[in-house]
Design a protein around this nucleic acid. Structure first.
Length: 462
RNA sequence: UCCCCUGUAGCUCAGCUGGCAGAGCGUCUGGCUGUUAACCAGAAUGUCCCUGGUUCGAACCCGGGCGGGGGAGCCA
């Protein structure tokens, strides 16, 4: 198989004959030499193919067709580069254009394009430096997630994407049906879900957590990593309708263990990005978010801060004049509060714990104060909450009470309650939005730019 | 869902009080002894988002629609 540009850069520049295939990023021509920069996606950097006067003469018609975006094959010899900017280059002897990209119609030219414009050409944007780098980092992070858990004896569990229960009683869900909606609408009949595919209403999952807890209570250390769906009408730079989520769940872990796991997990991912995606991160640091690498390095250097919700509210109340919405105990913290706490007070990642039970999910373990639950959110500078988790309520009676208090249907949770009826254990877990991790690691500003084909309200193109 | 901003050349934008449509980048042509966000010179390029209205006259003002962006809420 042919070598990638990444592999070529690991070879000695000893004049060996070499062939490269990829897409033209830019071409510079003078009378005496032409420079064709080719990229094949294997790394950030291009390989420079140099045509001397003889080569220009030999390749003239092809050189003219090799415009930005064209796919090409270049043959030549691998030599040290006399100019700075690259350690080696290809002294080209032959060029063939495989597929033209006419400059009058090819949307990507050798200039900076806005993220908004690139979103409109999602099928071509991976050919840009930025989106190529995002794709490589995304790939490396996905793999690192599995590495981290597998090294620690976690089992990867595949939870269902289609569910007949509204798992957390939270979040609008996408309905899945094979009923003929047009026909039903025209007939005016009531919908009979007994006739639907599953014999009852079914939805796309908003979380694999409740399902993965069942395997946690059997295998001990488990995690999910898969797509998740939210039909919320959210139009922000931090939300997607379809996103990927990582949800570890560990039997016998308390909230402290849970935070330790989350901290070492996040640090490991950041470390891997710094070490294995150095070229891509350098690009993000230079072009997307100044100081990115230094701030990521800072994350590795010290322990994350901790604060209870009650302590946090006290701090916020002292600074109440800085906020649009005045903080008080019981308030679900706003973005402005979360950013203030981790940016101004903690100066880095911050765990907030022990939230009022009213603003958290029913399954979280209740504290003895009767007011708070063993919840934790990890807040990070730049966008606030990146991880949400908790110790789960393992006491059957307390969990049933909570379900009734919230007016949820106990029958719907019978299998979940069985986990507390039979061999219950303390256990804890959390959820990390994969795309939010990528925002954090790449410095990209909009979550729609860290997933290949974003899904959001009124957005399902490509 | 709410609030704000925005739609003009391929892209990013300027366009004053309503009076002949502009710049930078890209593209093209020419020049240049190795360039690398190349450089120098020249050229081409418009449904001013759509629709209705006001006006002698609308890119500009008003109504409606559609698209894009940011913030908030919901959360991961």
């Amino acid at each position: 198989m042919r070598l990638t540009i990444k592999e070529i850069f690991e070879l000695p520049a000893d004049g060996r004959s070499i062939a490269v295939k990829g897409w033209v990023r830019t071409k510079r021509e003078t009378k005496a030499a032409a420079f064709l920069e080719v990229n094949d996606g294997s790394r950030m950097g291009n390989i420079q193919c140099v045509f001397d006067e003889a080569a220009i003469a030999a390749c003239l018609p092809e050189l003219a067709r090799a415009s930005t975006g064209a796919s090409v094959s270049v043959e030549g010899s691998l030599v040290p580069s006399p100019a700075s900017g690259q350690k080696l280059e290809i002294k080209a002897t032959a060029l063939s254009v495989i597929g033209e990209a006419p400059s009058e119609s090819y949307p990507l030219q050798k200039k900076a394009h806005s993220m908004e414009f690139l979103r409109e050409i999602a099928h071509l944007r991976p050919r840009t430096n930025t989106f190529g780098a995002v794709a490589r980092v995304r790939n490396r992070m996905a793999f690192a997630i599995h590495e981290f858990f597998q090294e620690r004896g976690f089992q990867y569990v595949h939870t269902p994407l289609i569910t007949a229960s509204d798992c957390e009683g939270a979040g609008a869900m996408f309905q899945v049906t094979t009923l003929d909606l047009d026909r039903i609408a025209k007939s005016g009949e009531a919908v009979d879900y007994a006739k639907d595919f599953f014999g009852k209403p079914a939805y796309l999952t908003v979380s694999g957590q409740l399902n993965v807890e069942t395997y946690c209570e059997a295998l001990g250390r488990v995690y999910t990593f898969g797509p998740t769906f939210r039909a919320e009408n959210s139009n922000t730079t931090r939300h997607l309708s379809e996103f990927w989520m990582i949800e570890p769940e560990v039997a016998f872990n308390d909230l402290g263990d849970n935070m330790e796991l989350a901290e070492s997990f996040l640090k490991r991912l950041v470390k891997t990005a710094i070490e294995d995606c150095a070229e891509d991160l350098a690009f993000f640091d230079q072009r997307i978010e100044k100081g990115l690498v230094a701030s990521l390095q800072g994350v590795l250097e010290r322990p994350f801060s901790h604060m209870t919700y009650t302590e946090a509210v006290a701090v916020l109340e002292k600074n109440a004049d800085q906020f649009e919405l005045k903080p008080y105990w019981g308030l679900d913290l706003q973005s402005e509060h979360e950013k203030f706490l981790c940016e101004k007070i903690a100066g880095g990642p911050l765990f907030l714990t022990d939230y009022p039970k009213e603003i958290k999910s029913f399954y979280m373990k209740q504290n003895s104060d009767g007011k708070t639950v063993r919840a934790m959110d990890l807040l990070v500078p730049r966008f606030g909450e990146i991880i949400g988790g908790s110790e789960r309520e393992e006491n059957l009676g307390l969990l049933q009470d909570r379900i009734r208090e919230l007016g949820l249907k106990e029958e719907a949770y019978s299998w979940y309650l069985d986990l507390r009826r039979f061999g219950t254990t303390p256990h804890s877990g959390f959820g990390l939005g994969f795309e939010r991790l990528l925002l954090y690691v790449t410095g990209m500003a909009n979550i729609r730019d860290v997933i290949p084909f974003p899904r959001a309200p009124k957005l399902a193109d490509f």
